[in-house]
């Protein structure tokens, strides 16, 4: 009876394992295939946390298994039965202490990495700034240095830290490109900074991660990383071929619509700052000026 059961369970476990490994192990498990330093740090943290929690989870499941099998209430069960035994200093000390140590280690590394991730990855050599605005229901990317703008796609040079500055002119959303690194909220009235970098050229999936209404499911985009020279080339091409981003054009964009990717040859100067500091956002201006968020706001 026992033998047969164990066999069945092994079979089920093996089946589950294969199921998970079969179609999953490919590049499609984005979080485990980071292409930049930020994503890599986060992946390490995920793996570390899996290992740390396994120290408790696996013994718990194994113990449960053994105990439930051994101490069944059958008339001929030979195992000891001690109905009054309910205290053990040693055992209790053990399972207060072990989790404390695990949490201590994990907590220490967490704090370290949390502080590390607000700084730019590696040495900051000539970072590129991209201002991101989540609209209903589309993403607007403005390149203040290049004076161009795109909608629903974003090109970046590979091997160069990118400083994304995030805001929203619609309900809060969250900017997430899993292979580059974790997400951060885009919030009306605030400009938040997120450092990301791509190690290698490629096309990376990104999406809005925080629910923002009816068209939310369609708010995905691609981040296309190219070598620097290709990127420069692309900028030139957009500058010479794409239409300008006028005030009227922005007003059209701000409406509640779902659109295809677009490109614009100009970048309304001050548009991003205006979006951030309209009405409610004016109270965050102190933070902007303190340099906590470097948004190139300049004078105001």
């Amino acid at each position: 009876m026992m033998q047969k059961r164990t066999g069945t369970y092994t079979l089920i476990a093996a089946l589950c394992a294969t199921l998970f490994l079969l179609p999953g192990c490919g590049e499609q498990v984005l979080v485990f295939h980071p292409v930049g330093p930020v994503g890599q740090v986060e992946k390490q943290m995920i793996i570390l946390s899996i290992v740390m929690v396994s120290i408790v989870v696996i013994p718990v499941i194994a113990l449960l298994w053994v105990i439930v099998v051994r101490y069944r209430d059958t008339p001929d069960n030979p195992t000891p039965y001690r109905p009054e035994w309910s205290e053990s200093r040693t055992l209790e000390f053990l399972w207060w202490a072990v989790p404390i140590v695990i949490i201590g280690v994990l907590g220490f590394v967490t704090v370290q990495k949390t502080f590390a991730l607000v700084r730019p990855p590696g040495k900051v050599i000539n970072p590129l700034t991209i201002q991101v605005t989540s609209l209903d229901w589309k993403w607007l990317f403005q390149y203040p240095g290049q004076k161009i703008a795109t909608v629903n796609y974003c090109e970046i040079p590979a091997n160069r830290p990118i400083e994304f500055v995030l805001t929203s002119n619609a309900p809060m959303n969250s900017f997430w490109v899993p292979q580059l690194g974790g997400q951060e909220y885009t919030m009306p009235g605030m400009a938040m900074k997120l450092w990301l970098e791509a190690d290698q050229p490629g096309v990376y999936f990104g999406s809005g991660a925080n629910f923002s209404g009816e068209g939310f499911s369609h708010m995905h985009f691609h981040v296309i990383a190219r070598p620097q020279s290709d990127f420069d080339h692309w900028v030139q091409r957009i500058k010479s071929t794409a239409p300008p981003l006028t005030t009227q054009q922005y007003a059209v964009l701000a409406q509640r619509t779902i659109v295809q990717p677009m490109s614009f040859s100009t970048n309304q100067p001050g548009l991003f700052e205006k979006i951030v500091s309209q009405d409610g956002g004016m109270y965050m201006r102190r933070d902007l000026m303190k340099g906590k968020v470097n948004t190139h706001v300049g004078t105001d």
Binding site: V31, G39, V41, E42, K43, M45, I46, L48, S49, I50, M52, V53, S54, V56, V57, V60, I61, L64, V68, I103, L106, T110, K113, T114, L117, S174, W176, P178, G181, G182, Q183, E184, A209, N210, F211
Partner: peptide, 29 residues
């Protein structure tokens, strides 16, 4: 009995979510 392994795994994923840098990848997913 069914609760224990279930909650052990659920609690473990909770600890994983608490690791702030990892949470940037888990949040809202």
């Amino acid at each position: 009995i069914a609760f224990i392994p279930n909650f052990a795994i659920g609690g473990a994923s909770g600890v994983m979510l608490a690791v702030a840098p990892a949470d940037y990848q888990f949040h809202n997913s």
